[in-house]
Amino acid sequence: MSATAAPSGLTGPALELSEHPAARMLIGRHRLRWWEPTPWILAIAFYFAFPSYLGFGTDLLITILFALSLDLALGYAGILTLGHAAFFGAGAYTVGLLAFNGVWSEPITSLILAAVVAAVVGFASGLVLLRTTGLTLLMLTLCTMLLLEEGANMAHEYTGGFDGLPSLSIPPIFGIFEFNPLYPHTQYIYSLVVLFVGFLLVRALIYSPFGQSLTGIRENMLRMHAVGSPVRWRLVTCYTISAAIAGVAGGLWAQTNAYVNLTTLSLDRAATVFIILILGGYGRLYGAFVGAVAYMVLSHFLARVYPTAWQLGLGLLLVVIALFARNGILGISESLWRRIQTMRRPS
């Protein structure tokens, strides 16, 4: 193994261990970069610039949160799942059922309950499913989601079946800020705050040693086993956290739309978030943001007017991305940026 040869920096007397370039990179990796506040500034600017599009904006923020949760499982840990809507739906139905039956509807605690229920579903399914990989795992996650969807459909006495649970009444946040379906200012700010909290959590996770071991598992599971990493527990933990965040996104969706239906559990939703993440670039934290904005803006303005042309264009785009731009929009931008920098350097 080539790793046994000591890096040149370690043998030289001048360079301390902590000043080795690799060590510096590891220490500074998690630091905030200058452009990182940009999405949040844009999100706040959107609030003032497009007050008539806040409903769309709220939807966009929720989609970002959902894609972010998928990024943790799929992008970082490499868990090939096509059934992430299972957790989105679990969260949405938790909020929906509690509010519809008048049991509990306070927004913030409801979201926490949604996270707990989704986490339990994620933990239970992860415990049995994550022993498998590849196509088998893909099929198992897919079938678990379809199972839940069919279950929700069959239990229509409680879930309303295909029609879902309409007109949930959600009380104001802190008893002050009301959800107004026509002027969704509260929904937008509320979703933005929840997304921010979720983002901070994911960001802290992926730069932690835990997150690092997830990347290791994605890159080479056999070697992580060999170095003694508790691979399966790491995967189950990651899957559970990811499920909890997806559950929060689902709960938010139910609260801001004031209804729940079967689409929250559907293959359509799972495939869409999958496409969004890979479109933006998976395993790179901001891919969820870029992909969701690109997809949602295009679909919002094209899909209603020209649904067939939109589907054709989307299909072609996915084919092109898969063939020529393996790492999505962010991947293209990064390689372009690098090319510009190497062009500058020699001069």
């Binding site: 590849g134 893909l138 496409i275 890979i278 042309a309 299909g315 785009l317 996915l318 084919v319």
Partner: peptide, 18 residues
């Protein structure tokens, strides 16, 4: 596998729309 899934989903959309 991710790129393969993305590519073939894209193809499905193209066939459906076509």
């Amino acid at each position: 596998e991710l790129d393969q899934v993305l590519f073939t989903i894209g193809l499905v959309f193209v066939f459906i729309a076509g």
